[in-house]
Amino acid sequence: MIVLDNVNKYYGDYHALVGITERVEKNDVLVVCGPSGSGKSTLIRTLNRLEAIDGGRIVIDGRDIHAKGVDVNALRAGIGFVFQQFNLFPHLTALENCMLAPVRLKRASKGEAREQAMALLDQVGLAHKADAYPNALSGGQQQRVAIARALAMRPAIMLFDEPTSALDPEMVGEVLQVMRALVRQGMTMVCVTHEMGFARDVADRIWFMAEGAILEKATPGEFFANPQHPRAIQFLADRNRH
């Protein structure tokens, strides 16, 4: 479904993504992990063109998404993106956050969008907070609304960029629970995360990145039991020590 073909990106002289060639199948859950500064976020942000690439191709559903003439808005409308910092619209209620894009992009009438938004908020366990503004919600609740907002466009793919990294520890669980429910529905997902428990339980594939390159790709079973690359071994050892 997603094919990366020798993707390269530079920030000036810095080689941020080094010749990434991989694929993600439909209905797969891919977890990308690695130390900070390894290019995980840059990589996931190239998948909906929040970041441009300097070489190679990214093909989603047979389309080269970084090619000239691609309708970037239509592309993004089909790909949900969840940010580390939630980025809810603070001047809109939880419900309005979930209605804005479907209504403005004419995917639904106001009534339909409202109904769908309520259903999605219910799905993330926040129907009772529909009329609350983001600043009245906890971090975990905000992130769940952000997931509902992304789902409101009925995306075929969901991208998560460290969705629990900005949360207090006691709120991580509620967000992961929502993500696990999505996995059960068969959503194609790419998650950049440090939640190794989540990776172990639900990932189909794990990519380990460092210095802009994928150093190891494996199933969770292989990765946690028998990591191959010295950097991956080191990374997992550091994780276990905490």
């Binding site: 808005n73 993004r76 409308a77 940010f83 894009a101 992009l105």
Partner: peptide, 29 residues
């Protein structure tokens, strides 16, 4: 915050729509 425009754009809103419905209402306030 940059994330406001980014999250609006990542939902598929165009630059103009993102300005009008997300950025300017907050900016003007």
């Amino acid at each position: 915050p940059k994330g406001q425009l980014e999250s609006a754009r990542s939902l598929g809103l165009g630059y103009g729509q993102a300005l009008r419905h997300v950025v300017l209402p907050q900016t003007l306030r």
